[in-house]
Design a protein around this nucleic acid. Structure first.
Lengths: 201, 201, 201, 201
DNA sequence: GATGAATGAGACTTCATTCAT
DNA sequence: CATGAATGAAGTCTCATTCAT
């Protein structure tokens, strides 16, 4: 992944960069990666292509910046939500975790999907790994504090399994629409999944 | 999704179509969607572009046929594996299910990933849904038979949750390499996830 | 220098390639290298850009093919003219040599200039060297036959000096127009230059 | 060729202009004309593009100024060297002339080449002609003083032939490297060329 | 005067698709 | 039916030049 080619110095250019990333998000969410052309992004951002290329060396860097921003926000979201239930019992923590994941998707499912779809492409994988690197220890730490009442012995592994399980589950649920994923029935099932997995048999 | 423009009548035609789909699989797995050009597919298939367009109206129909084939195989795989454990106890059935999912990925992870990556694009979603439509009742049927010893009441929902949970979990595991996903530690965790979810608390 | 990406098989494509190279010559002669765009060449050739890129991997390959053709023709011209005066006395041979060089420029001075202008750029230098490699031994061979009546001892060096002297001299003369370079006064001077250089003091 | 859009009045401005021309020389010598972007020149000159355009109306004016400077220096060099041998015998004068040409190339062959390469382009030809206008009479004047012992009758023509002969010969020699062009063998041949041309048969 | 962000025309190149042979 | 040459719309990216600050 290429990084921005130039750090914006002045306020004007910082605004430009922000507008470009935002436009990337919009276009990506609406049209998908293939239809996300640099010219379209520039137009939506209300900038000229030239300006875009002043700050991003190529198309991928554009999406890269967006992915960065996305995972940064996700990290912030997780840190906050998990901190709030640091000492809560398992079920409550599970619900908080699920809710955090849902919150991440709810805001802009199409964008979320587009970002995740792009992740497998070369280089950006690192960002996702970085997210795991961040979230897994957080969850593992919670589990460590409750180790007595939990089944898993390899906490890192268990935390990883949870992350890789909840994310797509919630993602798929969100795609089925609010009527489905806001329904307590679904949330209860997701909770059962987590609690069942973590509790002693 | 466009469908093949005409059904091959003769044996030679069928072989040609087969070669093209196979070539699509190879190219897609190796180079990704963007680099999958119709000319490259034709070359790899040992056919001319013209011939390719004799059987497929456009590029998407190409991938569409591949996705079709993929899910067909998946359905066969699932039908077979689940039939074998129709009356087995939960843990054994769970292991069979997980193994079936793993088998699906193991054969050609790159291709599997490419296919799944393509699914979100317009139209092919139907195929995935079709797979769910197929697999979910199968699992639900198993659960119905063991309803007494299981926790979930909405079996369809539970089966759906399992599918949407195991598929990506195994996928992520496969991406971490055989050393990880062949390790009993991982398989045990996956099994615990399923059993914990299904068993009464 | 990139070479053509694909050998034309059919008569149709051979004609296309020929038309493209010819168009390159025309455009290059008329507008110079910078203004020689691939689209313009394609248009002038009466072909689409796509066809152009079917045979030439990039713009430079286009000019490369032209340079190749140019020096091939030059070699043929020199071989023919020098063979004709293989046993002639020095002055007559000198006039033949000068005339050969003039002939090379006369046909299309603008093109000749454009080609030479392009030579310094990466890679094509080889072609010019190849021409020297061809012409220098030819001239040296002549000199060897007349060694008794000539001054230079290092024949290769002398032949090289002559080539590097006559080419630009004639080139500059041609640029001054026919009134200048067709004038016997100029030709006599050029002859004097060669004869004076080769003869014993 | 556009000329500088305004004459720098103050010392600081003159320094800026000088820095820009110098930067143009460096960039042109190192990267060639195509890669010589106005931004790069400005950066190397330690100025902003805006400032560059304060003094030069467009890119060509930049190179124009450089060409001007180049030929000015050449004129100075020739005037000095030829004055020193105003009354010397032919061979000595020939060696001085050759040495002057070599000196012109030796300092910065890449730049020299780049400048000459650019000369054919529209408009700058005038500069080269201007150089001829300057150098040819100088040489012709020398020849006039020795007319008795020389062959050529049309001195202007002979002087022109010499200039157009020596410049590219030396240029080609310089490109072959110091081992070649510093070798007395080469210099002797060049001298023989001049002396043989000028002396009575 | 200086700065450097912004502009946008236009260059190069690719590739899905057509069609003459 | 097969072939593969031809097409050209469209995408990415560069860079000379302008202009608000």
């Amino acid at each position: 992944m290429d990084r921005p080619r130039k750090r914006p110095r002045q306020a004007r250019s910082r605004a430009t960069v922000e507008a470009i990333v935002e436009a990337t998000a919009r276009v990506l969410a609406e049209h998908g990666y293939d239809k996300t052309t640099t010219n379209r992004v520039a137009t939506v951002a209300g900038v000229s292509v030239g300006s875009l290329y002043q700050y991003f060396p190529n198309k991928d860097a554009l999406v890269g910046a967006l992915v960065d921003r996305h995972f940064e926000r996700m990290r912030a979201l997780f840190a906050e939500r998990l901190a709030a239930v640091a000492d809560a019992p398992v079920e409550q923590a599970a619900r908080a975790l699920i809710d955090a994941v849902m919150e991440g998707h709810r805001r802009n499912p199409r964008l979320h999907q587009a970002v995740l779809e792009f992740v497998p492409r070369l280089g950006v994988q690192g960002q996702r790994d970085a997210f795991d690197t961040f979230a897994v220890p957080l969850i593992a730490a919670y589990m460590a504090r409750r180790r007595a009442e939990l089944r898993p012995r390899d906490l890192e592994l268990a935390a990883w399994v949870l992350m890789r399980t909840l994310q797509p589950l919630v993602h798929a649920a969100v795609l089925r629409g609010p009527a489905f994923f806001e329904d307590p029935a679904f949330i209860d099932e997701a909770t059962a999944l987590v609690v069942g997995y973590l509790s002693v048999g």
